[in-house]
Nucleic acid binder design. Structure first.
Lengths: 149, 149
DNA sequence: TTATTCTCTATCAAATAAGTTGAGAATATG
DNA sequence: CATATTCTCAACTTATTTGATAGAGAATAA
């Protein structure tokens, strides 16, 4: 699962993408529109700023804006930046590769072999969709036993 | 990421699948072969037993064995059982659907729309691979900057 | 009846996640 | 320059989850 922080980060970036080219957006406004605790959002936006995805300016009429065009930021990038990896297990991560604790030998691990494939497919999908892409909204799910997985 | 417990569960099930039809396997042996803390494995195997994937017998020469043929157990099933869902966000889960805390309206949530697709693709892959399938092992990753994502 | 092996609930510690505090630094404006 | 505004950043708190263990109990075979 994506952490709450990662989800907030994604929504904040979508918010900025929607306003790309329109000058700085202020933290308090983003927080309100996106329903994110403002103080927590400072942590998230500062992190995104340090990573170079967002630029900022202090003082009156300051705020945040995307440092990169929305068309050049994929959802894959966002998730990698926020959670370190797209993979489901550490040993299947490309950029944050790490041996799984208490595992059998990597070369013998069937789980790993499988998770490498899952990671590749996920990356394929998430790297292809950019912050600029219109996303077709899905109908809300109400209650139990619905049509979505 | 999959929890350690889920990874242990997968390895334990692979272990049982390899011995399908050969009588009960004992917890201590599975634990040793798969490098899983034995006491923790009791929790995991009991859970799998309660879910009906595994059968067990107590007493001398007792142990665990698959209650279902390996060909009928997919990795998707295993992950759903152990972590509740294949989805990356609660609101994109089919069987464990739940509103994401602090989100915008589900019908307005682009993240959700996207994650529904990720979940579908992951499910497609993981539901097609069964415990009985031979999995081509991947070479171990040594150190930094490798070829895997 | 005894040794063996699974069952179950409770509990604990460590790690992670979520969110807050508060002091500080840059910027625009009057 | 003084002030209000807005971001910056490290430290901290709290809640939750995860990983693991303990220990009493119940079934089974010999």
């Amino acid at each position: 699962m994506l952490s709450q922080k990662t989800r907030y980060a994604i929504r904040a970036m979508q918010d900025l993408a929607d306003r790309y080219g329109q000058g700085p957006a202020q933290l308090a406004d983003i927080a309100e529109r996106q329903n994110i605790p403002p103080k927590f959002l400072t942590v998230i936006l500062s992190e995104l700023t340090r990573f170079g995805l967002v630029d900022s300016q202090r003082g009156r009429d300051g705020g945040y804006w995307l440092a990169i065009a929305p068309v050049d930021i994929s959802y894959g990038d966002l998730i990698r930046i926020m959670r370190g990896s797209l993979a489901l297990v550490p040993c299947a991560s490309r950029f944050a590769h790490e041996k799984c604790k208490n595992c059998v030998a990597e070369s013998d691990c069937r789980t790993r072999a499988l998770m490498l494939e899952v990671r590749d497919r996920t990356a394929e999908l998430l790297d292809a969709i950019k912050l600029s892409d219109p996303i077709e909204l899905a109908p809300a799910d109400l209650g139990e036993g619905e049509t979505t997985e």
